[in-house]
Design a protein around this nucleic acid. Structure first.
Lengths: 205, 205
DNA sequence: TGGAAAAATGAACAATGTTCATTTACTTTG
DNA sequence: CAAAGTAAATGAACATTGTTCATTTTTCCA
Protein backbone atom coordinates (compact mmCIF):
# COMPACT_ATOMS: atom_id res chain seq x y z
CA UNK A 1 0.00 0.00 0.00
CA UNK A 2 2.70 2.46 -0.96
CA UNK A 3 0.20 4.76 -2.58
CA UNK A 4 -1.92 4.98 0.54
CA UNK A 5 1.23 5.74 2.52
CA UNK A 6 2.16 8.54 0.18
CA UNK A 7 -1.36 9.91 0.34
CA UNK A 8 -1.28 9.87 4.11
CA UNK A 9 2.03 11.69 3.99
CA UNK A 10 0.66 14.28 1.58
CA UNK A 11 -2.28 14.78 3.89
CA UNK A 12 0.00 15.33 6.86
CA UNK A 13 2.19 17.63 4.80
CA UNK A 14 -0.74 19.79 3.81
CA UNK A 15 -1.96 19.92 7.39
CA UNK A 16 1.50 21.04 8.46
CA UNK A 17 1.56 23.59 5.64
CA UNK A 18 -1.75 25.06 6.78
CA UNK A 19 -0.41 25.31 10.33
CA UNK A 20 2.77 26.92 9.10
CA UNK A 21 0.81 29.56 7.24
CA UNK A 22 -1.48 30.05 10.20
CA UNK A 23 1.44 30.42 12.60
CA UNK A 24 3.16 33.02 10.48
CA UNK A 25 -0.01 35.06 10.21
CA UNK A 26 -0.70 34.61 13.90
CA UNK A 27 2.77 35.77 14.95
CA UNK A 28 2.87 38.62 12.45
CA UNK A 29 -0.65 39.97 12.66
CA UNK A 30 -2.36 38.50 15.73
CA UNK A 31 -5.45 36.35 16.17
CA UNK A 32 -8.03 38.61 14.60
CA UNK A 33 -6.09 38.99 11.37
CA UNK A 34 -5.56 35.25 11.16
CA UNK A 35 -8.67 34.54 9.13
CA UNK A 36 -9.34 31.27 7.36
CA UNK A 37 -9.26 33.15 4.08
CA UNK A 38 -5.89 34.71 4.80
CA UNK A 39 -4.47 31.35 5.85
CA UNK A 40 -5.74 29.72 2.66
CA UNK A 41 -4.44 32.55 0.53
CA UNK A 42 -1.03 32.50 2.16
CA UNK A 43 -0.47 28.89 1.10
CA UNK A 44 -2.30 29.13 -2.25
CA UNK A 45 -5.15 26.82 -1.36
CA UNK A 46 -8.86 27.48 -1.22
CA UNK A 47 -10.88 28.07 1.92
CA UNK A 48 -12.60 24.71 1.63
CA UNK A 49 -9.31 22.84 1.65
CA UNK A 50 -8.48 24.27 5.06
CA UNK A 51 -11.75 22.86 6.35
CA UNK A 52 -10.86 19.44 4.99
CA UNK A 53 -8.00 19.30 7.48
CA UNK A 54 -9.35 21.27 10.44
CA UNK A 55 -12.86 21.11 11.85
CA UNK A 56 -12.95 24.84 12.45
CA UNK A 57 -10.86 27.83 13.46
CA UNK A 58 -10.67 26.66 17.08
CA UNK A 59 -9.00 23.46 15.90
CA UNK A 60 -6.29 25.47 14.13
CA UNK A 61 -5.77 27.70 17.14
CA UNK A 62 -5.60 24.68 19.40
CA UNK A 63 -2.86 23.19 17.24
CA UNK A 64 -0.93 26.45 17.42
CA UNK A 65 -1.41 26.52 21.19
CA UNK A 66 0.10 23.03 21.37
CA UNK A 67 3.08 24.18 19.33
CA UNK A 68 3.50 27.00 21.83
CA UNK A 69 3.68 24.53 24.68
CA UNK A 70 6.31 22.54 22.81
CA UNK A 71 8.36 25.67 22.50
CA UNK A 72 7.91 26.53 26.17
CA UNK A 73 8.96 23.09 27.36
CA UNK A 74 11.97 23.42 25.07
CA UNK A 75 12.84 26.65 26.83
CA UNK A 76 12.52 24.85 30.16
CA UNK A 77 15.34 22.50 29.17
CA UNK A 78 18.03 24.92 30.35
CA UNK A 79 16.69 24.31 33.86
CA UNK A 80 17.81 20.68 33.86
CA UNK A 81 21.28 21.91 34.75
CA UNK A 82 20.11 23.66 37.90
CA UNK A 83 20.38 21.07 40.64
CA UNK A 84 19.22 23.14 43.61
CA UNK A 85 15.41 23.06 43.41
CA UNK A 86 15.09 26.50 44.99
CA UNK A 87 17.38 28.01 42.36
CA UNK A 88 15.52 26.05 39.71
CA UNK A 89 12.22 27.45 40.95
CA UNK A 90 13.49 30.99 40.69
CA UNK A 91 14.92 30.37 37.22
CA UNK A 92 11.70 28.70 36.13
CA UNK A 93 9.82 31.93 36.68
CA UNK A 94 12.42 33.86 34.75
CA UNK A 95 12.20 31.53 31.76
CA UNK A 96 8.40 31.64 31.88
CA UNK A 97 8.38 35.43 31.94
CA UNK A 98 10.92 35.60 29.14
CA UNK A 99 8.78 33.31 27.01
CA UNK A 100 5.70 35.46 27.56
CA UNK A 101 7.65 38.59 26.76
CA UNK A 102 9.13 37.14 23.57
CA UNK A 103 5.90 35.53 22.38
CA UNK A 104 3.02 37.63 23.68
CA UNK A 105 0.40 36.46 21.19
CA UNK A 106 1.36 32.84 21.62
CA UNK A 107 1.24 33.27 25.39
CA UNK A 108 -2.21 34.80 25.12
CA UNK A 109 -3.38 31.87 23.05
CA UNK A 110 -1.94 29.36 25.50
CA UNK A 111 -3.19 30.90 28.72
CA UNK A 112 -5.96 33.36 28.04
CA UNK A 113 -7.85 32.97 24.78
CA UNK A 114 -10.93 30.80 24.77
CA UNK A 115 -10.30 29.03 21.47
CA UNK A 116 -8.04 26.17 22.65
CA UNK A 117 -10.34 25.32 25.58
CA UNK A 118 -13.41 25.51 23.38
CA UNK A 119 -11.75 23.04 21.07
CA UNK A 120 -11.21 20.64 23.98
CA UNK A 121 -14.84 21.05 24.99
CA UNK A 122 -15.95 20.37 21.43
CA UNK A 123 -14.12 17.04 21.29
CA UNK A 124 -15.26 16.14 24.82
CA UNK A 125 -11.73 16.17 26.14
CA UNK A 126 -11.69 16.78 29.88
CA UNK A 127 -7.98 17.09 30.38
CA UNK A 128 -5.73 19.90 29.28
CA UNK A 129 -2.57 17.89 28.79
CA UNK A 130 -0.37 20.78 27.72
CA UNK A 131 -1.25 22.83 30.77
CA UNK A 132 -1.08 19.84 33.05
CA UNK A 133 2.44 18.92 31.95
CA UNK A 134 3.63 22.49 32.38
CA UNK A 135 2.07 22.82 35.81
CA UNK A 136 3.69 19.53 36.79
CA UNK A 137 7.13 20.96 36.09
CA UNK A 138 6.41 23.72 38.58
CA UNK A 139 4.63 21.52 41.10
CA UNK A 140 7.44 18.97 41.08
CA UNK A 141 10.01 21.68 41.66
CA UNK A 142 7.99 23.08 44.56
CA UNK A 143 7.74 19.61 46.10
CA UNK A 144 11.51 19.18 45.77
CA UNK A 145 11.99 22.52 47.51
CA UNK A 146 9.81 21.30 50.34
CA UNK A 147 11.73 18.04 50.57
CA UNK A 148 14.90 19.93 51.41
CA UNK A 149 13.18 22.02 54.03
CA UNK A 150 11.74 25.02 52.25
CA UNK A 151 8.15 26.26 52.46
CA UNK A 152 7.49 24.48 55.74
CA UNK A 153 3.84 24.38 56.69
CA UNK A 154 2.69 24.89 53.10
CA UNK A 155 0.69 22.62 50.82
CA UNK A 156 2.61 22.04 47.63
CA UNK A 157 -0.25 22.19 45.17
CA UNK A 158 -1.94 25.44 46.19
CA UNK A 159 1.51 26.92 46.70
CA UNK A 160 2.55 25.94 43.19
CA UNK A 161 -0.68 27.38 41.84
CA UNK A 162 0.00 30.57 43.75
CA UNK A 163 3.43 30.88 42.16
CA UNK A 164 2.03 30.13 38.71
CA UNK A 165 -0.63 32.80 39.28
CA UNK A 166 2.05 35.24 40.33
CA UNK A 167 4.06 34.97 37.13
CA UNK A 168 1.03 34.47 34.93
CA UNK A 169 -0.62 37.53 36.42
CA UNK A 170 2.37 39.71 35.64
CA UNK A 171 2.59 38.45 32.07
CA UNK A 172 -1.14 38.71 31.58
CA UNK A 173 -1.35 42.29 32.85
CA UNK A 174 1.58 43.23 30.65
CA UNK A 175 0.17 41.61 27.53
CA UNK A 176 -3.31 43.02 28.01
CA UNK A 177 -1.72 46.46 28.39
CA UNK A 178 -2.87 46.99 31.97
CA UNK A 179 0.57 48.17 33.15
CA UNK A 180 0.97 51.30 31.11
CA UNK A 181 -1.35 54.08 32.16
CA UNK A 182 -1.28 53.05 35.81
CA UNK A 183 1.49 55.56 36.58
CA UNK A 184 4.10 52.98 37.35
CA UNK A 185 7.48 54.68 37.46
CA UNK A 186 9.37 52.16 35.36
CA UNK A 187 6.69 50.37 33.30
CA UNK A 188 9.34 48.98 30.98
CA UNK A 189 10.78 46.77 33.70
CA UNK A 190 7.86 46.43 36.09
CA UNK A 191 7.48 42.71 35.46
CA UNK A 192 11.15 41.97 36.10
CA UNK A 193 11.22 44.26 39.11
CA UNK A 194 8.10 42.72 40.58
CA UNK A 195 9.49 39.22 40.11
CA UNK A 196 12.63 40.33 41.92
CA UNK A 197 10.46 41.37 44.85
CA UNK A 198 9.04 37.87 44.91
CA UNK A 199 12.49 36.37 44.98
CA UNK A 200 13.44 38.73 47.78
CA UNK A 201 10.32 37.59 49.61
CA UNK A 202 11.05 33.88 49.46
CA UNK A 203 14.72 34.45 50.24
CA UNK A 204 13.64 35.94 53.55
CA UNK A 205 11.75 32.85 54.65
CA UNK B 1 -33.41 77.20 27.96
CA UNK B 2 -35.56 74.64 29.72
CA UNK B 3 -36.09 72.75 26.49
CA UNK B 4 -32.39 72.36 25.85
CA UNK B 5 -31.99 71.09 29.39
CA UNK B 6 -34.71 68.54 28.91
CA UNK B 7 -33.17 67.49 25.63
CA UNK B 8 -29.80 67.04 27.25
CA UNK B 9 -31.46 64.97 29.93
CA UNK B 10 -33.26 62.85 27.36
CA UNK B 11 -29.97 62.32 25.61
CA UNK B 12 -28.30 61.22 28.82
CA UNK B 13 -31.26 59.02 29.64
CA UNK B 14 -31.08 57.26 26.31
CA UNK B 15 -27.35 56.78 26.69
CA UNK B 16 -27.97 55.25 30.10
CA UNK B 17 -30.74 53.09 28.65
CA UNK B 18 -28.40 51.76 25.97
CA UNK B 19 -25.81 50.96 28.63
CA UNK B 20 -28.42 49.27 30.77
CA UNK B 21 -29.45 47.03 27.89
CA UNK B 22 -25.83 46.39 27.01
CA UNK B 23 -24.98 45.50 30.60
CA UNK B 24 -27.84 43.04 30.93
CA UNK B 25 -26.86 41.31 27.70
CA UNK B 26 -23.21 41.36 28.71
CA UNK B 27 -23.86 39.80 32.12
CA UNK B 28 -26.38 37.28 30.80
CA UNK B 29 -24.75 36.20 27.56
CA UNK B 30 -21.16 37.43 27.51
CA UNK B 31 -19.26 39.74 25.17
CA UNK B 32 -19.72 37.89 21.93
CA UNK B 33 -23.49 37.75 22.27
CA UNK B 34 -23.60 41.43 23.11
CA UNK B 35 -24.02 42.65 19.55
CA UNK B 36 -25.08 46.15 18.62
CA UNK B 37 -28.21 44.71 17.07
CA UNK B 38 -29.13 42.80 20.21
CA UNK B 39 -28.55 45.87 22.36
CA UNK B 40 -30.74 47.99 20.07
CA UNK B 41 -33.44 45.36 19.97
CA UNK B 42 -33.44 44.92 23.75
CA UNK B 43 -34.35 48.58 24.26
CA UNK B 44 -36.59 48.90 21.17
CA UNK B 45 -34.39 51.29 19.27
CA UNK B 46 -32.69 50.93 15.91
CA UNK B 47 -29.06 50.12 15.34
CA UNK B 48 -28.32 53.62 14.09
CA UNK B 49 -29.56 55.21 17.29
CA UNK B 50 -26.98 53.30 19.30
CA UNK B 51 -24.29 54.79 17.08
CA UNK B 52 -25.64 58.29 17.74
CA UNK B 53 -24.61 57.89 21.38
CA UNK B 54 -21.54 55.69 21.15
CA UNK B 55 -18.74 55.94 18.63
CA UNK B 56 -18.46 52.18 18.32
CA UNK B 57 -18.67 48.94 20.24
CA UNK B 58 -15.43 49.63 22.09
CA UNK B 59 -16.96 52.81 23.50
CA UNK B 60 -19.87 50.83 24.93
CA UNK B 61 -17.57 48.20 26.38
CA UNK B 62 -15.38 50.91 27.87
CA UNK B 63 -18.38 52.41 29.61
CA UNK B 64 -19.33 49.02 31.00
CA UNK B 65 -15.74 48.52 32.17
CA UNK B 66 -15.97 51.83 34.02
CA UNK B 67 -19.18 50.70 35.69
CA UNK B 68 -17.34 47.57 36.76
CA UNK B 69 -14.66 49.65 38.45
CA UNK B 70 -17.34 51.67 40.26
CA UNK B 71 -18.76 48.44 41.58
CA UNK B 72 -15.34 47.19 42.63
CA UNK B 73 -14.46 50.37 44.50
CA UNK B 74 -17.84 50.08 46.17
CA UNK B 75 -16.90 46.59 47.31
CA UNK B 76 -13.63 47.98 48.65
CA UNK B 77 -15.57 50.24 51.05
CA UNK B 78 -15.85 47.48 53.66
CA UNK B 79 -12.08 47.75 54.04
CA UNK B 80 -12.30 51.27 55.45
CA UNK B 81 -13.10 49.69 58.80
CA UNK B 82 -9.90 47.65 58.87
CA UNK B 83 -7.35 49.86 60.57
CA UNK B 84 -4.36 47.53 60.56
CA UNK B 85 -2.88 47.92 57.04
CA UNK B 86 -1.61 44.35 57.04
CA UNK B 87 -5.06 42.99 57.79
CA UNK B 88 -6.48 45.42 55.24
CA UNK B 89 -4.03 44.13 52.63
CA UNK B 90 -5.10 40.55 53.23
CA UNK B 91 -8.78 41.49 53.12
CA UNK B 92 -8.23 43.52 49.95
CA UNK B 93 -7.16 40.42 48.11
CA UNK B 94 -10.17 38.52 49.40
CA UNK B 95 -12.58 41.22 48.21
CA UNK B 96 -10.84 41.38 44.84
CA UNK B 97 -11.06 37.62 44.39
CA UNK B 98 -14.70 37.59 45.46
CA UNK B 99 -15.50 40.31 42.91
CA UNK B 100 -13.82 38.35 40.12
CA UNK B 101 -15.63 35.19 41.15
CA UNK B 102 -19.01 36.90 41.30
CA UNK B 103 -18.56 38.91 38.10
CA UNK B 104 -16.29 36.89 35.80
CA UNK B 105 -17.29 38.55 32.54
CA UNK B 106 -17.06 42.01 34.04
CA UNK B 107 -13.65 41.11 35.46
CA UNK B 108 -12.52 39.91 32.07
CA UNK B 109 -13.64 43.16 30.51
CA UNK B 110 -11.88 45.22 33.15
CA UNK B 111 -8.55 43.40 33.20
CA UNK B 112 -8.17 41.26 30.11
CA UNK B 113 -10.23 42.20 27.09
CA UNK B 114 -8.74 44.59 24.59
CA UNK B 115 -11.83 46.71 23.98
CA UNK B 116 -11.52 49.21 26.85
CA UNK B 117 -7.84 49.88 26.15
CA UNK B 118 -8.49 50.20 22.42
CA UNK B 119 -11.10 52.80 23.24
CA UNK B 120 -8.54 54.77 25.26
CA UNK B 121 -6.09 54.51 22.37
CA UNK B 122 -8.74 55.74 19.95
CA UNK B 123 -9.40 58.91 21.95
CA UNK B 124 -5.66 59.44 22.54
CA UNK B 125 -6.02 58.97 26.26
CA UNK B 126 -2.73 57.90 27.81
CA UNK B 127 -3.91 57.26 31.32
CA UNK B 128 -6.10 54.43 32.51
CA UNK B 129 -7.77 56.24 35.38
CA UNK B 130 -9.91 53.34 36.55
CA UNK B 131 -6.95 50.99 36.79
CA UNK B 132 -4.73 53.66 38.28
CA UNK B 133 -7.19 54.43 41.10
CA UNK B 134 -7.59 50.76 41.90
CA UNK B 135 -3.86 50.13 41.91
CA UNK B 136 -3.43 53.13 44.18
CA UNK B 137 -5.67 51.54 46.80
CA UNK B 138 -3.35 48.55 46.87
CA UNK B 139 -0.14 50.56 46.60
CA UNK B 140 -1.17 52.87 49.43
CA UNK B 141 -1.99 49.92 51.65
CA UNK B 142 1.38 48.33 50.90
CA UNK B 143 3.13 51.58 51.75
CA UNK B 144 1.24 51.76 55.04
CA UNK B 145 2.33 48.21 55.80
CA UNK B 146 5.92 49.24 55.20
CA UNK B 147 5.55 52.31 57.40
CA UNK B 148 4.77 50.10 60.37
CA UNK B 149 7.71 47.85 59.69
CA UNK B 150 6.50 45.19 57.29
CA UNK B 151 8.16 44.20 54.02
CA UNK B 152 11.52 45.63 55.00
CA UNK B 153 13.96 45.91 52.14
CA UNK B 154 11.20 45.93 49.54
CA UNK B 155 10.19 48.59 47.05
CA UNK B 156 6.55 49.40 47.50
CA UNK B 157 5.59 49.78 43.87
CA UNK B 158 6.98 46.57 42.39
CA UNK B 159 5.82 44.75 45.51
CA UNK B 160 2.29 46.09 45.08
CA UNK B 161 2.38 45.08 41.44
CA UNK B 162 3.55 41.64 42.47
CA UNK B 163 0.61 41.26 44.83
CA UNK B 164 -1.81 42.54 42.21
CA UNK B 165 -0.35 40.03 39.74
CA UNK B 166 -0.77 37.28 42.28
CA UNK B 167 -4.49 37.79 42.77
CA UNK B 168 -5.11 38.78 39.17
CA UNK B 169 -3.29 35.71 37.95
CA UNK B 170 -5.46 33.40 40.02
CA UNK B 171 -8.67 35.07 38.87
CA UNK B 172 -7.49 35.17 35.29
CA UNK B 173 -6.55 31.48 35.19
CA UNK B 174 -9.87 30.59 36.77
CA UNK B 175 -11.94 32.70 34.38
CA UNK B 176 -10.09 31.52 31.28
CA UNK B 177 -10.71 27.94 32.45
CA UNK B 178 -7.05 27.05 32.87
CA UNK B 179 -7.56 25.48 36.31
CA UNK B 180 -9.83 22.61 35.41
CA UNK B 181 -8.08 19.92 33.42
CA UNK B 182 -4.76 20.48 35.17
CA UNK B 183 -5.47 17.69 37.70
CA UNK B 184 -5.71 19.94 40.69
CA UNK B 185 -7.21 17.97 43.55
CA UNK B 186 -9.71 20.58 44.66
CA UNK B 187 -10.26 22.80 41.61
CA UNK B 188 -13.39 24.27 43.17
CA UNK B 189 -11.39 26.00 45.89
CA UNK B 190 -7.96 26.28 44.33
CA UNK B 191 -8.06 30.08 44.18
CA UNK B 192 -9.04 30.44 47.82
CA UNK B 193 -6.55 27.79 48.89
CA UNK B 194 -3.75 29.40 46.90
CA UNK B 195 -4.51 32.79 48.37
CA UNK B 196 -4.34 31.25 51.83
CA UNK B 197 -0.84 30.01 51.00
CA UNK B 198 0.12 33.58 50.16
CA UNK B 199 -1.23 34.79 53.50
CA UNK B 200 0.70 32.03 55.24
CA UNK B 201 3.77 33.19 53.36
CA UNK B 202 3.63 36.82 54.40
CA UNK B 203 2.67 35.88 57.96
CA UNK B 204 6.00 34.08 58.20
CA UNK B 205 8.04 37.15 57.38
C1' DT C 1 -48.42 76.82 10.43
C1' DG C 2 -44.38 75.92 7.80
C1' DG C 3 -39.77 75.27 7.47
C1' DA C 4 -35.42 74.22 9.79
C1' DA C 5 -32.98 71.41 13.03
C1' DA C 6 -32.54 67.27 15.52
C1' DA C 7 -33.40 62.48 16.16
C1' DA C 8 -34.26 58.06 14.54
C1' DT C 9 -34.41 54.64 11.08
C1' DG C 10 -33.01 50.48 8.55
C1' DA C 11 -31.20 49.17 4.14
C1' DA C 12 -26.66 48.41 2.47
C1' DC C 13 -21.58 47.31 2.79
C1' DA C 14 -17.52 44.76 3.92
C1' DA C 15 -15.52 41.17 6.52
C1' DT C 16 -15.89 36.92 8.95
C1' DG C 17 -16.60 31.67 9.83
C1' DT C 18 -18.68 27.96 7.72
C1' DT C 19 -21.03 24.78 4.32
C1' DC C 20 -21.65 22.09 0.25
C1' DA C 21 -22.79 21.26 -4.65
C1' DT C 22 -19.69 21.16 -8.30
C1' DT C 23 -15.36 20.48 -10.56
C1' DT C 24 -10.83 18.54 -10.96
C1' DA C 25 -7.33 15.06 -10.21
C1' DC C 26 -6.06 10.69 -9.33
C1' DT C 27 -6.59 5.50 -8.86
C1' DT C 28 -8.42 1.26 -9.85
C1' DT C 29 -10.55 -1.97 -12.81
C1' DG C 30 -12.30 -4.43 -16.87
C1' DC D 1 -5.59 1.84 -22.19
C1' DA D 2 -10.07 3.68 -21.44
C1' DA D 3 -13.83 4.01 -18.34
C1' DA D 4 -15.58 4.21 -13.98
C1' DG D 5 -15.11 5.26 -9.40
C1' DT D 6 -12.91 7.67 -5.55
C1' DA D 7 -10.56 11.33 -3.32
C1' DA D 8 -9.25 16.13 -3.20
C1' DA D 9 -9.99 20.77 -4.07
C1' DT D 10 -12.74 24.57 -5.24
C1' DG D 11 -15.30 28.88 -4.56
C1' DA D 12 -19.92 30.56 -4.63
C1' DA D 13 -23.32 31.17 -1.18
C1' DC D 14 -25.15 31.85 3.60
C1' DA D 15 -25.60 33.81 8.18
C1' DT D 16 -23.80 36.99 11.35
C1' DT D 17 -21.03 40.65 12.66
C1' DG D 18 -19.69 46.04 13.10
C1' DT D 19 -20.47 50.13 10.78
C1' DT D 20 -22.25 53.90 7.66
C1' DC D 21 -25.43 57.13 5.74
C1' DA D 22 -29.27 58.62 2.74
C1' DT D 23 -33.87 58.91 4.02
C1' DT D 24 -37.75 59.55 7.04
C1' DT D 25 -39.87 61.10 11.20
C1' DT D 26 -40.21 64.07 15.02
C1' DT D 27 -39.53 68.25 17.44
C1' DC D 28 -38.94 73.05 17.82
C1' DC D 29 -39.48 77.92 17.04
C1' DA D 30 -40.47 82.15 14.33
Amino acid sequence: MAIADRKAKEKDDLKALILKGAKKLFIDKGVEQTTIRSIAESIDYSVGTVYLHFKDKNAILHSLHTQGFSQLSGDFKVLYNVSDPMERLKALGKVYIQFASDNPDMYDLMFTLKAPMEFLDAINEEEWNEGKATFDVLHTTVKQCMEIGHFTGHKSEPLAFMIWSLVHGMCSLEISKRCTGVNIKDPEHIVTNAYDEFIKLIDKL
